[in-house]
Computed example of a mutant assay.
Amino acid sequence: MRYLDWGTKVFDGFAAIGWPTAEVAAGYLPDLEQPLTTLNFADFAIVCRDDLPEDVAYLATWCMVKTRRALESQYTHFPPDHSPVTYPVDPVAMADTPIPLHPGAIRAYADLAGDTGDGQILIWS
């Protein structure tokens, strides 16, 4: 495995739209011998084109919010500082993205405001 530095030009470009960097400590990943600067992927983001139909963006967002407890349960065996997913997953934090939300996603987050995730736990199969 080889870890590549993206360079300041790439990081500066992402910083201009509000996407911060993070540092991965030496030894955190196999054979990572020195700290590595990368984009902050503390959580995940789904990026789509502007012309994605609104109903599709709404459904994707609805599914992410409604299935978050199932997703969390798949990562609780990782120590929190090594988990690829921050949990508990917080829809308010999910909606706070470094890039603008799709109008369908905005509507879904508004419709699901206050959803605790403690009701019917949906899961995919």
Rank of each mutant, 00 (worst) to 15 (best):
L4V: 15
L4Y: 10
D5E: 14
D5H: 13
G13E: 11
G18S: 07
G18N: 09
W19C: 12
E23N: 02
A26R: 00
G27Y: 13
G27R: 13
Y28A: 12
Y28M: 10
Y28E: 10
P30Q: 07
P30I: 03
L32D: 14
E33G: 12
Q34K: 15
P35Q: 09
L36M: 07
T37E: 09
T37Y: 05
L39E: 08
N40H: 10
D43T: 13
F44N: 11
F44W: 13
A45G: 12
I46T: 01
I46P: 01
D50L: 14
D55H: 14
W62V: 06
K66P: 02
Y75Q: 01
P79D: 02
D81F: 02
D81E: 05
S83M: 01
S83R: 03
S83E: 00
V85G: 04
T86L: 03
Y87V: 14
P88D: 01
D90R: 05
P91S: 08
P91I: 11
V92T: 05
V92M: 02
A93M: 07
A95N: 00
D96I: 05
T97F: 01
I99P: 04
P100G: 08
P100H: 07
H102S: 04
P103V: 07
R107N: 11
R107E: 12
A110P: 01
A110I: 06
L112Q: 01
L112R: 04
A113S: 10
G117P: 02
